[in-house]
Amino acid sequence: MNSSSTVQERVKAKIPSALAQNPRLVMFVVLVIVSTVLSKGVFLSPSNIHNMLRQYATIGIMAVGQTVVILLAGVDLSQGSMMALVSMVVAYLNVNGFGLILPLLAGLLVGALGGLFSGTIITRAKVPPFIATLAMASICRGLATLMTQSRPIYGLSKELLVFGRDTIGGLGIQVVIWICVGLLGIFLITRTVYGRGVYAVGGNEQSAHLSGINVQRVKLLGYAFSGICAAIAAIVITSRMDMGGPYVNANDNVQSIASVVIGGTSFAGGRGTVSGTILGTVIIAMINNLMNLMLINPYIQQGIIGAIIVITVTLNHRRAKVE
């Protein structure tokens, strides 16, 4: 073996194996075709696609953070509740005359601190991630409802509504934010020292530790990032709904995890990509869109997401076994 051949082979191997190893790409193509046929072309209309993306931007943003945590062999079950809490904090500060910037910063800070808190419990007290974040979910949910005795906060200032409603060059701002967060996630994971640390810690914590990686810090920052993503999603949804909503949609968290799973990231940690997750969210959006087009009972839809998680993980498991 020599270096030049590795590089060449690398490029050559990339294209065909990408298709073979990416069932989600196949899934994506099949969904596009099925949706287009069933909707008699309506699916492919720019407005349909745009609406779909706008609707799923919040899930997509959360899923980017969720990817990092699952790559670390953990999970964040508190994202949905964190979103409610941040929505309330942002709305509360906004209607009480703190303008735009301060509420946004405060929201992001709450998300980051919440993530750091979960991360601390996980790394210091060695509480399993799903339990620590389940507890965190309960805490955030309580705090969110506590602020106004479970009443939504209305009357947000106009400039706050920008994030859910306006467009830049025809693209909804929330879609732009999703793209930015996605690119940031991809950059963080593939182009920084931190990203390498995430893969190493998720893949084999002890080896990573003996290679000089600060395992605790990598994990802490991962949960903080997940919290920040939930906070960004909260800002978008607050803006879109024109209110601070204390209610938690349990399904949001499930969809965030489902995006990651469909995106090909393994719960064992160490394997997966942010780009896969973004595609995963798009696939979920398309499935839901398809179900809407087919006038399927909306109540069935959240069940379908659960079924998709089970099927995807099962298929991944099968494939791993065959290999």
Binding site: V75, A250, V254, I257, Y299, G303, G306, A307, I309, V313
Partner: peptide, 24 residues
């Protein structure tokens, strides 16, 4: 037992499925 996935992932999924059946 068949899929060997973490139990919290599986039951999080069935949580959604069962809820959806109840809603339907």
């Amino acid at each position: 037992t068949k899929t060997k996935m973490p139990s919290f992932v599986l039951t999080l999924s069935t949580m959604g499925i069962v809820r959806s059946i109840a809603l339907v």
